[in-house]
Structures are given as C-alpha cells and as structure tokens.
C-alpha cells in the first residue's frame, strides 16, 4: 500500500503547514493559537447540536463537490456551480410557493427538489452550450451566469416574490412548517437529507469508477480529440457531465430552501459552490477524500463563529485556514510531481 501511505504523508504535511501558518498568524495578532483551535474544535464537535449544524453545512457542500467532480472528469471547470445552486433554490422555492395550499406537502417537497435540480441542470447546460457551440470558455461563461443568477434572485425577492408590503433582504415570506423538509423530533439536521447525500456519494462512486459511462467521461476529459476516434462524441459527454454537475448543485440549493432557511434569501448559496471548488481541488479531484474534506471545511465554518464570541477575533480565520489548506495542498502536489519528474 505505498499509495495510501503517500496520501497519508501528503495529508499530514498539508495539515502541518496549515497549522504552522495559522498559528503564526494568530501569534502576530496576539491571540493564543491553542485557545483558538480549541474553540474551533469545541464549536463544531463539542455537542450533538453543534455537530448537527456541521452536518447541515456538510450536506450542500458535499453535493456541490460531487457535482463538480463530474464536470472535472469531463475536463470542465464548472465555476458556474454557485449560480446553479441559486437556480436550484429558485426552482424549489417556486414550486413550494405554488404548492402552499396543495394539502400534500410530501409531494410538493419532492417536486420542489426535482424542479430545483431541473432548473439548475438547464442553467448548467447553458454554460455547456456556450462552451461547445459558442466557444466561450466555461470559466467565463460560469462567472457570467453566476452574476446573472444573483440578479434573478434579487429581482424575485425584491419584486414578484416579495413579502406583502415589504421588500426585504431577509427574503421571501417563510413557508408554513408543513412544507419544511422533514426531520425527526429534536433533530437539528434532517436524517433524510443526510441519507440523500450519502446515496449521492455511493451512486457517484459507482458511476465514476465502475461504469462505462464514467470511463468514457474520463477519456473525454483526458483527450477529447482522441475519443472521437473511438466513436464517442466529446461534446455529448461534456454536456452530460455539466448537466449532472448542475443537478447536484440544484439539489443542494433546493435543500437550503426547504431544509435550512424555509424561504428564499439572497445569500441562499452561502458560497458553498465556491467552497466546493476548493474541496475538490484539495481532494486532488478524487472522490474518496471529498466527504472528509467537506466535513473538515464545514466544521471550520460552524466552529469559527466561536472566535468573535469568545475571543473577539474575526471569524474570517476559517476562510484563511481553508485557503491555506488548498494552497499548501497545491504546493505539496506540485512538489510531488516535480520529484516524480526527476526520478521517474
């Protein structure tokens, strides 16, 4: 198992760099690194209620990261994941608004998630088409579409979907409790949403690593010109890759609306799309580490709220740690590549 050992040393190396860097930073501002790390840890794993908050972040973050993995496999940088999540949230909110009086909440919630996935997939397809038909690089298309999606959600919240008499940054009127994504008594995280996410992980593992489709997707990503010699359409796989990517981001957006905020708010994506990009990069574009890295990032996000409360430190430290992780990972991966190049 030399492979596993290498991964482990890489991970430890990355963590050591990040810890040293963050500790130095904290020492410079005159705060105790031990205390800060202690608060981060206790604030995320210190109790079941806190851990369930972590899981509430883990769910959308993992879904976005899984989606990104499909796009990366087909060779695409789906920066538009953020906007796709927003569109997913809009789709779900639209269905829930429409179904407020339907008397069948379970059906409505299912429809809401499906509508969110569909709308987000179409939004992703738009970026894919711009790439395959218009020759627009997907990074620019994605960024552009992210801005447009922000425009749409703000327009809806301040316009047609505003609260009676009041347009507010706090979003649309909350849905009645019957239309909240179901959870169990006393639970702060929905076990059903958790199960959905675990299911998505398992399916992704099957599809990407053990199916012909996954193999073809990978082939397209590696060498789009060569695959056409084998009768595969690179464009088809590219579009399918980004559509799945969008659908998973849309599911994340739909769950944010139905399970977390119970309404549509401008910041509904909470930046999880962009954070997902970091997760996937840190995972070196492999599936297995994604759930764990996502859990680590989610814990940082939730735990960091302790810093301003207990130490009067800015909570953006969690962002610094996340960024430092990715940078040192790129460094470690890069060094590894260099070394391999020298001693083949």
């Amino acid at each position: 198992m030399p492979n596993l050992r290498q991964h482990l040393t890489d991970t430890l190396l990355i963590l050591a760099i990040v810890l040293a860097f963050t500790a130095l930073l904290l020492a410079i501002v005159g705060a105790s690194p031990i205390e800060a790390f202690g608060h981060l840890f206790k604030g995320s794993f210190g109790s079941w209620s806190k851990f369930s908050r972590v899981l509430n972040v883990w769910i959308p973050l993992t879904l976005c990261s899984l989606g990104l993995l499909y796009a990366f496999r087909s060779g695409l940088w789906n920066i538009g994941v953020e906007g796709q999540m927003v569109l997913g949230a809009i789709g779900a909110a639209g269905v829930l608004r429409w179904g407020v009086d339907s008397g069948n909440p379970l059906l409505m919630l299912t429809l809401a998630l499906l509508a969110g996935m569909l709308l987000a997939a179409l939004w992703a397809l738009l970026a894919g088409w711009l790439k395959t038909r218009g020759g627009v690089h997907e990074i620019f298309a994605g960024l552009g579409l992210n801005f447009v999606s922000m425009g749409i959600i703000l327009w809806l919240i301040f316009g047609p979907w505003k609260r009676p008499g009041i347009a507010s940054m706090s979003g649309t009127e909350p849905f009645p409790a019957a239309l909240w994504f179901p959870t169990l008594e006393g639970w702060r995280v929905s076990p059903f949403a958790l199960a959905l996410t675990v299911l998505a992980i398992i399916i992704t593992a099957r599809v990407l690593n053990h199916s012909r489709f996954g193999l073809n997707l990978k082939a397209v990503g590696h060498n789009p010109r060569a695959v056409s010699l084998y009768g595969l359409s690179p464009q088809f796989y590219l579009l399918i890759g980004i559509i799945i990517s969008g659908a998973l981001a849309g599911l994340a957006g739909g769950l944010q609306v139905s399970g977390i905020y119970h309404r549509l708010i401008p910041a509904i994506s909470s930046g999880y799309g962009y954070l997902g990009l970091l997760v996937v990069m840190l995972a070196n574009f492999r599936l297995l580490p994604i759930p764990f890295i996502a859990l680590f990032f989610a814990a940082l996000n939730v735990g960091s709220i302790q810093l301003p409360m207990m130490m009067q430190l800015d909570s953006s430290l969690s962002g610094v740690i996340q960024g430092a992780c990715v940078l040192s990972a790129l460094l470690v991966f890069g060094l590894r590549k260099l070394k391999r190049g020298r001693n083949p």
Binding site: R53, N56, I260, V302, I305
Partner: peptide
C-alpha cells in the same frame, strides 16, 4: 457577512 449562519444555530450555541 456570515454566509450559512442561521439564527436558530447561533441561539442554540
């Protein structure tokens, strides 16, 4: 300012 933060979550804490 604090993406992902919800009021019930802070109140629990």
């Amino acid at each position: 300012d604090r993406p992902g933060l919800t009021i019930p979550m802070v109140v629990d804490d």
